[in-house]
Structures are given as C-alpha cells and as structure tokens.
C-alpha cells in the first residue's frame, strides 16, 4: 500500500510540475491543484493507515478506542485543503485580471511589466 501511495503521490507531483510549466494559465492552475492533492496525500500517508476507525470518541466513552486513525495529520490536511483553495482562488482571480488587461492567456507573454 505504501509503495502504491508513493507512486500515486509521485505521479501527482510530476503531473503538477509538468502542468505548471505550460504556458496556458488554465493548465497552470490545474497543475497547482494537483500539486496540493499530492501534498495532502503525502501528509496523510506519513501518518500511517488505519482503516475505518475515525478519531472520534464514541458517545458512551471518555477516550477514543485504542486503535483509531491518527488525528494530527488530519488536522494538518484540513488546514492545507482550505489554504490551497485560498491560494488557487487568488491565483485564479489574478490570472483572470491579467487576461482581461493584457488580452492573452499565455504566461510566456507576461514576462515584462509593460503590457
């Protein structure tokens, strides 16, 4: 499982980096999103796998069951998902405005500050 996850995560990163090197704004944003997915899965995998036992304390107990999923990576990922959404949304609006101002969606044409 860990090896399989490593392949998936590596693939997500490779795809993300590849797309971020495209000249098209849309491809760049998709690449950014894939990169965040890869990062989230990486944190999740680092915490280890525990099937079907969420870190929730049952109604009638004071402590969680002995075997339950690690809550710490989950808390980190929860934060990461929200932040990557914020970054993506901001980049999206930025690109949109750049497109509206310059009339091009080609990042290669945005090298100089003069439009």
């Amino acid at each position: 499982m860990e090896l399989l996850m490593a392949i998936v995560i590596g693939f997500l990163y490779a795809a993300g980096v590849f797309l971020m090197q495209r000249r098209n704004m849309v491809k760049f944003l998709v690449g950014l999103a894939l990169l965040s997915h890869g990062a989230n899965l990486l944190i999740f995998t680092a915490g280890g796998f525990t099937r079907g036992s969420p870190p929730i304390i049952p109604e009638d107990a004071d402590v969680a069951p002995i075997l339950h999923a690690d809550p710490l990576p989950q808390a980190l990922i929860l934060t990461a998902i929200v932040i990557s959404f914020a970054v993506l949304a901001f980049a999206l609006i930025l690109f949109l405005r750049a497109y509206q101002t310059t009339g091009t969606d080609d990042l290669h044409d945005l090298r100089s500050t003069d439009t």
Partner: peptide, 30 residues
C-alpha cells in the same frame, strides 16, 4: 524536472512512512 520531482516526492513518501523521529503528540490529543 517533472519526473525528477515526482520521483523525489515518491521517495520522500516511502522514507517518511518509515521515519518516526520523535514520539507523536497525537496520543495526547486523543
């Protein structure tokens, strides 16, 4: 570069899964 970065992150995944450098604070939270 894409493949290289991907390979590095895959290697990191494997290595991170093995490494338990410090006791986790998860149990305290639980």
């Amino acid at each position: 570069p894409s493949v290289l970065v991907g390979s590095l992150m895959a290697a990191l995944t494997l290595a991170a899964n093995r490494a338990n450098l410090a006791p986790s604070i998860s149990s305290y939270f639980s």
